[in-house]
């Protein structure tokens, strides 16, 4: 496996407030270093997806900033941002007829990297999807397609991976596969930000280093926890919310 030339930098959410009227007043602060794994938890409608899209600068914040090292993400050119940060959504692509291999090639193009065969093969091997290389995305099951999307993201934005409930439509094995894939990304220095309702599966993966609890309207707004994911504590905190 090749060593990667990119110098890795931390991700900082600074006094971030989301641009959705019902989330007004929810301040979010967080600081992550390379190799950190953040789980974002919160009830339905707590703003998890909005937060993730704001981190990616696909939505503007109401206030505050997102920093990647010395750069403010909102000021990066989209192509430059794509080379450093990647996003996986909860729904796998269902209408794309390109092959798994072509999808991985797109990741390299988005990252502005040369599209060479060995990087694509390496990326597919690392994610354990090489056997599907020539299959069409729309012929894969949701679980398989989602693993391809995670592999695509890992190949594209190597500094930060943002994932919005990537395991929502998957069975137990699919969930484990994706989480171990993310664990692997984390150990190679990528910052992983994952929104999930699957508290047990996430905790079982043993990968999590930080968690962020979004509870708009409760006065506190959000709580950033450092040092491991306490699933019991998270569950209690979610239960205590009066919404």
């Amino acid at each position: 496996m090749k060593t990667e030339p990119t110098s890795r930098e931390g991700l900082t959410l600074h006094h971030l407030e989301l641009a959705r009227p019902d989330l007004k007043g929810m301040r979010i602060n967080a600081a992550l270093s390379p190799g950190d794994f953040l789980v974002v938890v919160g009830r339905n409608g707590a703003g998890k997806s909005t937060l993730l899209q704001t981190i990616m600068s696909l939505l503007p914040p109401a206030q505050g900033e997102v920093w990647l090292g010395e750069d403010q993400v909102a000021e990066l050119r989209p192509r430059d941002r794509a080379a450093r940060m990647s996003l996986v959504t909860s729904t796998p692509p269902r209408h794309a007829g390109i092959t798994v291999r072509a999808t991985m090639e797109l990741a390299l193009r988005a990252a502005g990297l040369p599209v060479d065969r060995s990087s694509v093969e390496d990326g597919m091997k690392r994610a354990g999807i090489a056997v599907w290389a020539d299959r069409r995305l729309d012929h894969l099951s949701d679980g398989m397609a989602q693993r391809v999307m995670v592999a695509r993201a890992a190949l594209q934005g190597r500094e930060v991976m943002v994932l919005d409930e990537p395991t929502a439509f998957l069975d137990v094995v699919g969930k484990e596969d994706i989480l171990s894939q993310l664990h692997h990304c984390r150990t190679s220095g990528t910052i992983v930000v994952l929104a999930s309702h699957d508290l047990d599966a996430v905790a079982a993966s043993g990968a999590v280093t930080h968690w962020l609890h979004l509870h708009p309207g409760s006065g506190l707004g959000s709580t950033f926890h450092e040092g491991g994911f306490a699933v019991q504590e998270a569950r209690e905190a979610l239960r205590r919310e009066h919404r």
Partner: peptide, 20 residues
């Protein structure tokens, strides 16, 4: 042409991949 393929992965995914 590559933007079109990224677009087929989903609008949000395409934007995250740098598509305008």
């Amino acid at each position: 042409r590559h933007d079109f393929d990224m677009w087929m992965l989903g609008s949000l995914t395409a934007r995250s991949m740098g598509v305008n």
